[in-house]
Simulated assay, not measured.
Amino acid sequence: MANASSKRIASANETALKNLELGLLIVNLLSPIIRFLLSLITSRTFFPRKLVIFLHILFIGGSIFTWRWFKTIGKPSAGQPGKQVRVGEDLGGKGVIELGWDLIYMTWICTLGSAILGDWVWWLSLLVPAFGAYKLFSTIRPILAMFLPGLFGPKSPRNPQAQAGNQAGAQEQAEQNDKPESKRQAKLKARMEKGDKRVQQVQVQRNR
């Protein structure tokens, strides 16, 4: 089973790396071509603003670094002679690997989107650090809850005494409802259903 799982991970990683390399090549070739064609058709300039160029270089560099890192951890590698081959990490995993894929996909979206729609698409790149901060906070929150339970610990009910009283009352009522009727109550109920006047008079007096 372990050998089959290792083969599945190795095959999936190989496919993912090939698609990643192809995607990097296509996106970075299409983007300048689209910009050039639109600059001829519309009044848009071919060269974007300096901030967009800086963001493009930053995110492309991050994507290439992530791709190289994926190749390092995703491919099986032979260890020392006589030892088993080390299986690569699953590139479909969670955590930092998932954040790396988000960086790559967002880079592709912003690169092609800015070439087609305009440079404002690069504002979407802010989602990457925002998601990274959220994942980091989710990871370290249990540690923060140990030192600051009032801020990061589980939320307790506002009035625990009232809630406990309500639960006890509901449980008592349920127990009373579950108790079987006595023989005397069953006889009185049967007489009332038959229309016994004596039982009806007793019931009227109790209601008064």
Rank of each mutant, 00 (worst) to 15 (best):
N19G: 15
I109S: 05
A170F: 02
F70C: 06
A170G: 08
L136D: 05
A190M: 07
I109N: 05
W120M: 02
W67R: 08
V27N: 04
G118M: 07
E172I: 10
P154L: 01
A186P: 05
K75T: 13
G88K: 03
I116V: 15
K187C: 01
D178A: 15
G150Y: 07
L188Q: 13
P129K: 01
M192V: 06
W67F: 15
L30F: 03
N19I: 09
R35T: 09
K189C: 03
G74W: 06
E193D: 13
E21K: 06
L38T: 08
L37A: 15
F131Y: 04
E175D: 11
Q171S: 12
K183H: 07
N166E: 13
Q167G: 01
L112G: 03
F46C: 06
K75D: 02
L144F: 11
E21C: 03
V96K: 09
R86A: 10
A186K: 13
I57E: 08
M1V: 09
F54V: 12
G132P: 05
D196Y: 03
L99S: 01
K94H: 15
I60V: 15
G150K: 10
A12N: 03
A12K: 08
R208F: 10
W67M: 07
S5P: 01
P149M: 00
G61N: 08
I97S: 05
E181Q: 10
I116M: 13
K187Q: 12
A4Y: 02
M106W: 10
F46K: 11
T66N: 14
P154E: 08
E89K: 13
W122H: 12
I64E: 02
P129D: 03
K135T: 04
K71A: 09
W120R: 10
L17I: 14
A190I: 00
L30C: 08
H56M: 11
H56F: 11
L126I: 15
K135A: 04
P157V: 14
P149I: 02
L25E: 11
L136Y: 12
G100A: 10
P32H: 04
Y105M: 09
A168C: 01
V96D: 10
L24Q: 07
L188K: 11
E98F: 14
D102S: 08
A4L: 12
Q200D: 04
A16I: 08
K83F: 12
S43K: 09
Q161T: 14
F36Q: 08
G165Q: 15
L91V: 00
M106K: 07
F152H: 05
S5I: 03
Q167A: 15
G195W: 00
F36K: 10
S11N: 14
L148V: 01
E89H: 10
V96R: 14
L29I: 15
F65C: 03
W108A: 13
F70D: 02
W123A: 15
L99Y: 09
K71H: 04
I104Q: 06
G79S: 09
W108S: 08
E175C: 02
F131W: 08
I57R: 08
I116K: 11
H56R: 07
T72A: 13
F47K: 11
Q205E: 09
S125P: 00
G118F: 03
